[in-house]
Simulated assay, not measured.
Amino acid sequence: MRVADLIKNKGSSVVTLPSTATVTQLLETLDDHKIGAVVVLDEDTVVGIVSERDVVHHLRTGHEQTSPLSELMSTEVHSVTAGDDLVNLAATMTERRLRHLPVIEDGALKGIISIGDVVKARLDALEAERDHLEDYLRR
């Protein structure tokens, strides 16, 4: 299975905020959408990603909720393409301890993949394989 297959099934919608948005706005967005990370876009360009972990660290170190996202976002954004394989992607996410990866094609944001999406896709594939084997054995 490829990233494109997963995006086709889950959809390509991505919640984004500009780097000038505040931590308070980020918290509202995360809660409203029930998500764990937001891609930071300035002028349609991915400039960062910010997660719940980033917020916890930011607030714990005494920073304010009025701080702009540019102060806490990760600017080294690891991304994937539609053609990437989910098995390899799962290994990369585990090794690098990444829970969210934007899908970028030709410089444009096309979706986002979470570790939960990858786990669900893998479980669905295993279940389908099991069902197929059970059907085969019943014949």
Rank of each mutant, 00 (worst) to 15 (best):
L27D: 01
H132D: 09
S74Q: 14
G107T: 10
T75E: 14
H58A: 10
L72H: 04
M1T: 06
S19F: 04
D85H: 11
D117F: 04
R99E: 02
V39H: 05
V103C: 11
L17G: 03
Y136E: 09
R2M: 09
D117Y: 05
T24M: 02
P18I: 11
V15G: 01
L59D: 09
D85F: 05
L101W: 10
L30M: 07
V77E: 10
L6I: 11
N88F: 03
D32E: 15
E129P: 00
K8I: 00
T61G: 00
R2P: 00
G11V: 10
I35A: 04
V56T: 12
D85K: 09
D131Q: 14
V103S: 11
D131E: 15
S51Q: 05
L27Y: 00
K10P: 08
V80T: 14
V15S: 02
N9K: 15
D85T: 06
M93Q: 07
V118A: 04
K110T: 12
V3W: 05
S70P: 02
K8T: 10
S67K: 02
V118N: 04
K120W: 00
V87Y: 09
G83H: 05
G62W: 03
H78F: 14
T29S: 13
S13P: 00
V15P: 01
H100K: 06
V40L: 05
A21K: 03
T66W: 08
E52T: 07
S114T: 15
T16W: 02
E71P: 00
V47Y: 04
L123N: 03
I7Y: 03
K110A: 13
V77S: 10
L69A: 08
G107W: 10
N9S: 13
T75C: 04
K34G: 01
L27H: 00
K110V: 10
L133N: 00
D117A: 04
V55S: 05
V40W: 01
A37M: 07
H100I: 06
K120Q: 13
A37S: 15
V56Y: 09
N88W: 03
T24R: 15
L86I: 15
H78E: 14
V46K: 10
M73C: 08
N9T: 10
H132E: 14
L101S: 07
L6F: 05
D31A: 14
N88L: 06
L101G: 06
L109Y: 11
R60L: 13
E28M: 06
L89Y: 09
V40E: 01
V80F: 05
P102G: 12
M1A: 12
V119R: 04
I112W: 01
H100A: 05
D124E: 15
E28L: 09
E64W: 07
L27V: 14
S51R: 03
V50Q: 02
E95Q: 13
M73N: 05
V3E: 08
V46C: 08
E105T: 11
A82E: 15
V87R: 13
H63V: 01
T29K: 14
H33Q: 12
A125F: 06
G83L: 03
K110W: 07
H78M: 12
V119S: 04
A108E: 15
G111A: 11
G111W: 12
T92E: 11
D135Y: 01
P18G: 08
S114K: 03
G107N: 10
E64Q: 12
G62M: 07
L133C: 00
I35R: 05
P68F: 07
L86F: 05
S19P: 12
V119L: 14
